[in-house]
């Protein structure tokens, strides 16, 4: 290669590498701000600020959803299979909201450690399949219920 071109190529590579390092360090420093939500482990560890608008995300714990009969109020627990946080929400839930599904809730953590949400968004995973396949998978999992929780934590 022509020495001039070699020099130019070196400059270009240094330019890109330098910017990549700068951006990498910046995003690493800001990672807590880039994270969209706190997970239950972080909240349990006291990393999330109290009474500040934050987001909490995780999986809706199976069997934890309690709907109040005369209002739209719902109480459920959000878990990451390690810790769980009680969430209280009043309003219309997205269609995909269900036990065992991922959610991201926006709201404030109160003094008693309960998360009071004013918005609940559904989070889904990257798996797509027809209903029949999902049904047969569910049957398989029910057959070996002991492994259900471990597979659950892998897909959330």
């Amino acid at each position: 290669m022509h020495p001039l071109r070699k020099k130019r190529l070196t400059i270009v590579l240094f330019l890109v590498a330098g910017i990549a390092i700068a951006v990498g360090l910046t995003t690493y420093a800001l990672r807590q701000n880039i994270n969209l939500f706190y997970d239950p482990t972080q909240i349990a560890a006291g990393e999330a600020p109290v009474d500040v608008r934050i987001r909490a995300g995780g999986m809706v714990e199976a069997g934890s959803v309690v709907r109040e009969p005369n209002s739209l109020k719902v109480i459920f627990r959000v878990t990451d299979f390690n810790e769980s946080v009680p969430v209280e929400y009043e309003g219309i839930l997205p269609d995909l909201f269900a036990e065992g599904q991922g959610v991201v809730a926006m709201g404030r953590l109160n003094d008693s450690g309960r998360f009071v949400a004013d918005q609940v968004l559904a989070k889904h995973d990257e798996n797509y399949m027809p209903p029949e396949v999902a049904d047969s998978l569910k049957k398989d999992v029910a057959g070996q219920s002991s492994s259900a929780e471990t597979t659950g934590s892998a897909t959330y």
Binding site: T27, R31, N35, L36, V104, H124, Y128, M129, V133
Partner: peptide, 24 residues
Amino acid sequence: EWWNTLHQPATLKLTEKPSMSSEM
């Protein structure tokens, strides 16, 4: 993968089997 996002991880992966039924 690096951060918590609302967007789900990639369905089509370079090294692994895609997490999608073949009819889709």
